Structure formats: C-alpha cells, structure tokens
Amino acid sequence: MHALKGVSFDIEPGEFFGLLGPNGAGKTTLISVLAGLTRASAGRVLVHGKNVQTDYQAARRQLGVVPQELVFDPFFNVREALRFQSGYFGVRHNEAWIDELLEGLGLADKAGANMRQLSGGMKRRVLVAQALVHKPPVIVLDEPTAGVDVELRQTLWQFVSDLNKRQGCTVLLTTHYLEEAEALCGRIAMLRQGQVVALESTSELLRRASSNVLRFKTDQTLPDDLAAVARVTGRVVQLPAHDALEVERILARARESGVLAQDIEIRKADLEDVFIDVMENAAHAQGARA
C-alpha cells in the first residue's frame, strides 16, 4: 500500500495554500518528501525549481518547516538555538532578524531562557522562529497550532500572514482547525488515503456546499433518518438544510419523534461541512473501486 499515490499539484509563489485530510491521509508524509526527509519511490518534487533529491542543499535553503513534534535541544537558550539554526544554513550577522522574530512571536522576554524551562506553547513558538530564521521563501506549517492557546494562534497567524502579504512568502499549511484554513488559505487540497480528492480555491469549495446548516441542542436521541445525515457533538446537532421548507421538515420530524430542539439557529455552510462531504464522497468512490 502506498502512503501517497499519484499526488500532483503546483503551489504558486506567494500563495497561502492549505493541505487538509484526516489522520493518516498522507499530509506529514508529503511534507517529509518535500523537506527531503523521506525519499519518494517515484516522481519528483521541486522547491523554487530545486529538486529536493538531486539538489537537496539548494532546495532545503528555500524551505522553512515547522514540524508537529516539539523537538528542541535542552542545552541551549532560545537565542542560542536561533543562532545555531542560522549557522546551519550559513547565515551570519543575523541578530537583527532574530530580534524581530523574538518580538513578533512573543518570545522577547524568553530569549535567555533555557529551552527546557519553556511551556509547550512557548516551545512551539521557538520552532516557528527556527523555521523562519534563515528567511526561507517557502514556509511549511504542519499542525502549528495543535494544542496551543488562543493567544499563540492569534500571534502566529498575524506574523505569518504578514510574511505572506508583505514579503511574498509562500505558505503551505496543514491543520485540523478548518476555520483557520478557511480564513487564511486561498486554495486548498484535500487528501484521503494518500490521494488528492479535492483541489480548488477556498471560495469555490464553499460554493459547492449546501446553502445552510440547521443547528440545535437536544438531550434526546434523533430518529434514524435524521441521525444518518446529522453531525452530532455532545448535545449539539447539525443538519444540512437547503431552504426554509427543509428546516421546517426537519424540526417537524424531530417533534414527531419526541426530540426537544433548543437554541435553534441557521448558519451558512463552512469549510468543515465541505470537508465532511468531500471525505464521504471519496470514501464511497474509493470503496467502489476496491
């Protein structure tokens, strides 16, 4: 079985590109191939025209990767870690940019702190700074806000968005927070079982979604016909509803079944709704081919 199969797409310079998929879809494998950490059995990957296998050093200098895992050297403080990373890429006299990174990522007051003393969120900020310290034109963010607080998420996205808009950096983002991808990414690829199952602009993906979603809370169990199409999280139920007549039909069916709907609201479909639809359709298609 292939971790990736027939994956092919281009990311334009200066683009903010999203790579989405469930766990095990192949996102991190694809990033590992891009970074030269995993060797693809076929095909080729170019970063700014540099082949990641045959011209590894040049390709790697074009790339800054923020991994999922918290990897750090326990013997350095924050500033020393960034200086060491600069030296890895042969970048000298980099103090001004290091200061800007420390300030922009909220690390200025931690510059002299040993890496072991930092919280998980602060360590993740350092990983971002290390990925950016050699000023790469391409930034890869692999689940950069997983398990971190709201403040870090806001700080990170403000800083990275500024790099994208002001300096024209290309950004490749993987995330399970789909509201982030919807807000930040101009174009999105969706992976399932190592294959691209959707590749379109974010706006086009959203246009494909059902027009509305009915949302309410209940303590009762939904009837089977509603449960089959509902997304249920605890007490919260969400159902696709294309128009007012369908909203009324769903609520009437719930009343008939003894389901008390509370805090009823209707919202526009978002990227999470699209993602679920794409994954379900892809599962049916891949199952039919199996």
Rank of each mutant, 00 (worst) to 15 (best):
M1N: 09
A3S: 13
K5M: 08
F9A: 03
E12Y: 03
G14Y: 04
G14D: 08
E15T: 01
F16T: 01
G18Q: 10
L19D: 01
N23E: 06
T28R: 01
L30Y: 05
I31H: 04
V33D: 00
A35G: 15
L37T: 08
L37A: 15
T38I: 12
R39M: 12
R39G: 05
A40E: 09
R44E: 14
V45P: 00
V45D: 00
V47I: 15
H48M: 14
H48L: 08
G49L: 06
G49T: 07
G49C: 03
Q57M: 11
Q57E: 14
A59D: 04
R61W: 07
L63Q: 02
V65Q: 04
Q68H: 03
Q68P: 05
E69D: 15
D73F: 03
P74D: 14
F75H: 06
V78F: 04
R79P: 00
R83T: 07
R83Y: 00
F84D: 04
Q85H: 13
G87W: 11
G87I: 10
G87A: 06
G90Y: 12
N94S: 00
D99S: 03
E103N: 01
E103Y: 02
L105T: 06
L105V: 05
L107G: 02
A108D: 09
K110R: 14
A111G: 01
S119C: 05
G121T: 08
R124I: 05
R125E: 03
Q130C: 13
V133P: 04
V133N: 02
P136Y: 02
P136I: 05
P136W: 02
V140K: 04
D142N: 06
E143S: 09
P144C: 07
D149V: 11
N164T: 06
N164L: 07
K165V: 13
R166C: 05
Q167H: 13
Q167N: 04
L172Q: 04
L173Q: 09
L173G: 06
T175A: 06
H176Q: 15
A183W: 11
A183M: 10
L184K: 06
C185N: 09
R187I: 15
I188Q: 11
A189M: 10
A189E: 10
A189Y: 14
A189F: 14
M190H: 11
Q193P: 03
V197C: 12
A198N: 05
A198K: 07
L199T: 12
L199M: 11
E200V: 02
S201A: 14
T202A: 12
S203I: 11
L205S: 11
A209W: 10
R215D: 01
R215Y: 00
F216C: 03
L222Y: 08
L226I: 15
V232F: 10
T233D: 15
V237R: 01
V237C: 08
D243Y: 10
A244K: 14
L245Q: 15
I250P: 02
A254Q: 06
E256K: 12
S257C: 11
G258M: 07
V259L: 08
L260I: 12
A261M: 14
R267I: 11
D270C: 12
L271M: 08
D273T: 09
V274D: 05
F275I: 10
I276E: 07
M279E: 12
N281M: 11
A282L: 10
